[in-house]
Amino acid sequence: MFYKRSLLFFILIIVVFSFVGCIQPCSDSKIKEVSMQYLKDKYNEGFEFQNIEVSMNEADGWVYKVYSIPKNNPTITVTVSSKNLLNDIADNYKQQKWDVTRGEQIKDLIETKFGKSTNFRISFVVNKEIENKYSVYTDPLDIIKKEANYKKGSRTGYYEHVYERVYVSIPIDENINEDYVAENLLDLVKYYNDLNLYFDIDLTFGKKEINEESNIKSDGTFKDIFANVLVTSDTPLEKNSIRKLIKYNK
Rank of each mutant, 00 (worst) to 15 (best):
V100T: 13
I76E: 00
K190N: 09
G206H: 09
Y198P: 10
D142S: 15
S241M: 05
V34P: 02
T118P: 04
S154Y: 10
S214D: 12
V166P: 00
N127I: 09
G206I: 06
E212K: 09
N127L: 01
S123I: 09
K145A: 11
L245W: 05
I76W: 05
V20N: 03
D99W: 08
K42E: 10
F49Y: 09
D194P: 01
P74M: 00
Y159T: 09
N240M: 14
T101G: 11
V34L: 06
R243H: 05
N84H: 09
I110C: 01
H161T: 14
E160G: 12
K128Q: 14
L7E: 13
K217T: 02
E160S: 14
E164H: 04
I210E: 11
P25Q: 03
D88K: 15
K217N: 08
Y248V: 01
I210G: 02
T75D: 08
L245V: 00
K42V: 10
Y158R: 14
I52D: 10
R102P: 04
S169T: 01
V20T: 08
V80L: 09
N92V: 10
K65C: 02
E33H: 02
D91A: 08
S68H: 05
S169P: 02
E131D: 11
K4H: 03
V168K: 06
E183R: 00
F120V: 04
G115Y: 04
N72Y: 00
K239R: 10
Y191R: 00
E183Q: 01
Y191F: 12
D142K: 15
N228H: 04
T204E: 15
N132P: 05
N87D: 15
K152L: 11
D41V: 13
D219V: 06
L185N: 05
D99A: 05
T79A: 05
S241Q: 12
N177A: 07
S35D: 07
D224C: 03
D139R: 06
Q24D: 14
F114Y: 04
D200L: 08
E174R: 09
V16P: 11
M36W: 05
Y134A: 00
L188R: 02
F9G: 04
L7K: 15
D173A: 12
I130S: 07
M56C: 03
K116S: 13
L197D: 12
I143P: 06
E209H: 01
E209M: 03
P140A: 13
K65H: 06
Y43T: 05
Y137T: 15
L186R: 01
L230Q: 04
L86N: 00
E160R: 12
E104F: 14
I13R: 08
S169N: 10
Q105M: 13
I11N: 07
F9H: 06
L141K: 15
S123F: 12
G220W: 14
